[in-house]
């Protein structure tokens, strides 16, 4: 008690070298380390370079773009101390709705037989709107009934999948217009991901939206007492996440040029994994877009590396599982240190 005066003023002087590095250095080192391991193994096992192959890197990033967009959406929810398990299902339903409006009229239409070719803006807006609407439902249920987000979004995970099956009576929706292929072609998925990441980086760091998201995640009671409309903000954040799932569904559908009720199955788990590996705290209040991007790249590097070495892909899930648990253990340890 008496020596408490010394604690005033010591906060800055006690900063270690580690704390002075940019915040995502640790996780970036993990990424570099994993890439380096594959590089070294590559020399010995398949006598090829892993990193210095532009095409492989591009394909890797391309494949991760959809998970990346989902991860940005669920990441901001986790920062708010929530969780959303319904990303993959919402992607599936939004994608099938978008596809049904993007079908070429030359072929039999799965859902709307009388429809002519629509400008691609319609399926795109429809996909995003469906995602946002289901996100709004998620947020409203969580905010108004105060049930745990885990349960609410688990319900949505099941229900949205059911909606997708009901919407097409289980049929696949194929033969989309050529124009619709643009969002999945070339570098567009990556560009979309980077735009989404950039927008949400700015939103979370520089706007009232972000400030309130972090505040609610850090201490919901304090946020309420400070006069933040916590319920309304929760609904907004879940709706924004839903809109991102909608954007991801457009990229996914455009790449595959077909949609079925099973599209996006379990993708939410990869997205949540990327967020957690990227240093976002499941306790809320902490997390950054840059970390999530690195988390996404780590998952992509693992998949790409296992393929590169010709190792059976199911081993990758073991490594992923270990990484996720390690990330949460590291975060828990950090929480305890702060609390002490």
């Amino acid at each position: 008690m008496i020596n408490s005066s010394s604690t005033l003023g010591s906060a800055e002087t006690q900063k270690s070298l580690l704390q002075r590095l940019p915040k995502d250095t640790g996780i970036l080192l993990v990424l570099v380390g994993i890439a380096a391991i594959f590089e070294v193994l590559g020399w010995f096992v398949v006598e090829q370079t892993f990193i210095f192959n532009g095409q492989r890197l591009f394909i890797m990033i391309l494949q991760m773009a959809i998970i990346g967009i989902l991860a940005i959406g669920v990441g901001q929810i986790i920062i708010m101390a929530g969780i959303d398990l319904s990303g993959g299902s919402i992607l599936g339903f939004a994608g099938i709705v978008a596809a049904s409006l993007a079908q070429s009229s030359e072929y039999a239409r799965a859902v709307y037989p009388a429809l002519t070719d629509l400008p691609i803006i319609f399926p795109v807006l429809a996909g995003i709107a469906v995602g946002a609407l289901l996100g709004f439902v998620n947020g409203s249920v969580i905010a108004l009934t105060a049930i745990p987000p885990f349960i609410a979004t688990l319900g949505m995970l099941v229900a949205a999948r059911g909606l997708a099956r009901w919407y097409t009576s289980g049929k696949q929706v194929s033969f989309l217009t050529e124009d619709f292929a643009i969002f999945g072609s070339g570098a567009w998925p990556v560009v979309t991901f980077l735009i989404v990441a950039g927008v949400f980086h700015v939103l979370l760091k520089y706007t009232v939206y972000g400030r309130r998201t972090y505040a609610i995640g850090s201490n919901e009671d304090a946020a309420r007492v400070a006069g933040i409309a916590v319920k309304r903000h929760k609904i907004l954040v879940y709706t924004m996440a839903g809109a991102l799932y909608g954007i991801a569904s457009i990229v996914q559908t455009s790449r595959a040029m077909t949609a079925q009720s099973g599209t996006g199955l379990m993708l939410e788990l990869d997205a949540i994994s990327a967020v957690v590996i990227g240093g976002t705290s499941l306790f809320g209040g902490r997390g950054r877009i840059m970390g999530t991007i690195i988390g996404v790249l780590i998952l992509g590097t693992l998949t790409s590396g296992f393929t590169f070495l010709g190792i059976d892909v199911y081993y990758i899930n073991i490594v992923k599982g270990v990484l996720i648990v390690a990330a949460v253990v590291a975060d828990t340890y950090r929480q305890k240190r702060v609390a002490a």
């Binding site: 400030r211 505040a215 850090s218 201490n219 304090a222 946020a223 007492v225 400070a226 006069g227």
Partner: peptide
């Protein structure tokens, strides 16, 4: 009594919480 601060935010963010 329980301070009602958001521990992950900095000082100005806490002072202006809810009225940024």
């Amino acid at each position: 009594q329980n301070l009602a601060l958001a521990n992950d935010l900095d000082v100005p963010a806490n002072i202006f919480l809810g009225r940024e």
